[in-house]
Design a protein around this nucleic acid. Structure first.
Lengths: 245, 245
DNA sequence: GGAAAATGTCTATTGATATAGACAACCATA
DNA sequence: TATGGTTGTCTATATCAATAGACATTTTCC
C-alpha cells in the first residue's frame, strides 16, 4: 500500500486542500511537537500517496495562513498551533472562558441597530414578531487573531443603549451591568457546523472552504426572562467547545 | 452584481461542490418547502453566478446522495430533507434523544476489543495509562441512514462483556443495565468540527469533503466514577446539537 | 396541437489541478 | 570542505473543472 494517510480523488475538493486540512489538524493535535517541524515534503508525499508538488501546494496554503514557514535547506517550521477551548455552561461568558488561554482578548463592535424582530429572533426571545429589538454585530479576538463573529439581539426598550455600553465596556457582561442587569445565565445553546461564506472569510481572516462552528445561544436574567439571543460563528480550526454539566 | 449567493473561486474546492453544499443546506433549512422542488437550473446558475453546467454537476452530486431527483420537463424534486436534533445534557442518551424525530433507530456494533488505555483514554477515564479497557466501535442509524460513528472505551474489569451486552440490547443504556449499572450521567462533552476522512466517508455514507461534528464525551455513574469515554463523529449536515442548561 | 419551460446531451475551449523529472540553492554537520 | 538532506524553481504533459453555445426531449398548460 502506497499511502497510509488517505485522500479522496475526484470529489470536487483538490488534493492539496485535503492535505492542507489534514496537516493543519495534525499540527493543532500536537503530532509534530517533538521536532517543531512538519515532515519533509518527500515523506509527506509518500504518506499521502501524491506527488511532491501537490504537497508543496498544501504547505504553501498553510504558509499563507501563517501556520508554517518553509526554510530552504532546513525544513518547514511550525509557526502557530492553537485551538482555544470554550467552556459552555449556565455561566458561559466569552471573556472569562479564554482569559487564561490567551494573553490578550479584545471585542470589536462592528455596528448596532434597532430593528423589528423577525420570526426566529422573536421565538428565541419570547417576543411577538415585529417587536423592536437591538442588534449588535461583533468580532471577538484572542491574541489579535479573530476568533468569532457574532450577531446578538436584545429586547429593545429594556436594553436601549447597549451598543454604546458594549463599545465602552468591551464585554457583554459589563454592558449588561452598566444597564442595571447584574447577572444572567445561559439558557440554551444550539451547535451546528458549516462551510464559511465570503463574509465569514473576510471578518475572521479565513481561507475559503474553512469550517465554522456555529452556536445559537439564549441568555436569560435570573427570573428566566430572555435578555439576549446570539448567533456566533467560530473558526473551527481555532476553537473547541466543552460542555460541563 | 451578478450572483447574490456567493461562491469562492480558486480555493481548492470546486464550484460544483460548494454549490451542492449550499443547496443541500438550503433544502435541510426548508428553503424550498413551498414547491418541494429546487429552483430551475438556469435560475440557480444566475443566483450563484456560474454556468448552468456547473449547477448541473452540483445537482448530479445531490442526486447521487439521494437528496434530489431530476425529472425532465418538470424540474428537480426534493426527495429527502433532514437534520436531526441531539439534546445534550446530564441525561444525554442517543436513543431517547431522537426517538420522536425518526421512525426507526438502530445501533450496529462493528466490533469490540480489550486493550490497554492510551494516554488520552486514561486521562478521561481517570485511569493509569496501560490499564485494561474495553473498546466498542459502533454506528448509529436513524431511519436506515447512518448518523454517527462512535468509538467508546469502558473500564475493563467492571464492564467485561459489554460488547455482547450492547449487541443484544442495542443501546448503551440497556447494556449498562444488563451489567448492573442502572443509571449514569453525562459529565463532560467536547465538541469540534473537521473534514470527514476516508473511514468516515465509508462508515457514514458521506461524500468526500463533508463536514463532521465530533464529540468527546465522558459519562460517570452516580458516584462520579467514569464509566464511559466516547468519541462520536456525526455527519454535520444531518444533525445539530442542543445544550439545555 | 402548440408554446413555454424545464431537464438531457453534445461539441469545443480555457484555466486549474496533479504528475513527472531534473536540477539549483541552501543548511547542518561529519 | 565535502556530503546528505532539504526546499526552490523550471519544463512538460495529462486530467479535471468551468464556460459557452446549440439543440433534443419531456412535461405542463393554454
Amino acid at each position: 500500500m502506497a499511502g497510509i494517510k488517505q485522500v479522496q480523488r475526484q470529489t470536487g475538493v483538490a488534493l492539496w486542500r485535503q492535505i492542507a486540512d489534514r496537516i493543519r489538524e495534525a499540527i493543532s493535535r500536537g503530532a509534530y511537537d517533538e521536532t517543531g517541524m512538519v515532515p519533509p515534503e518527500t515523506v509527506l508525499a509518500l504518506q499521502f500517496g501524491v506527488n511532491r508538488h501537490t504537497v508543496r501546494s498544501a504547505l504553501a496554503a498553510l504558509a499563507q495562513e501563517g501556520i508554517v514557514r518553509a526554510v530552504q535547506g532546513r525544513g518547514t517550521l511550525i509557526e502557530r498551533k492553537e485551538r482555544l477551548n470554550f467552556p459552555i455552561s449556565r455561566r458561559t461568558r466569552f471573556t472569562d472562558g479564554i482569559r487564561d488561554q490567551a494573553r490578550e482578548t479584545r471585542a470589536l463592535l462592528l455596528g448596532h441597530a434597532e430593528e423589528e424582530a423577525d420570526a426566529e429572533v422573536a421565538r428565541w426571545l419570547h417576543l411577538k414578531p415585529g417587536t423592536p429589538v437591538i442588534r449588535l454585530e461583533t468580532v471577538r479576538e484572542a491574541d489579535k487573531r479573530p476568533v468569532s463573529r457574532a450577531t446578538s439581539w436584545f429586547p429593545a426598550p429594556r436594553f436601549a443603549g447597549i451598543g454604546e455600553a458594549y463599545r465602552m465596556a468591551g464585554s457583554i457582561t459589563k454592558a449588561f451591568a452598566a444597564l442595571g442587569l447584574s447577572d444572567y445565565v445561559r439558557a440554551t445553546t444550539e451547535i451546528t457546523a458549516a462551510h464559511a461564506d465570503s463574509a465569514d472569510i473576510a471578518d475572521l481572516g479565513l481561507t475559503p472552504g474553512a469550517i465554522l462552528l456555529i452556536t445559537k445561544a439564549m441568555n436569560t436574567d435570573l427570573d428566566g426572562e430572555p435578555v439576549q439571543y446570539s448567533i456566533s460563528r467560530f473558526a473551527a480550526d481555532r476553537v473547541q467547545f466543552t460542555i460541563e454539566s
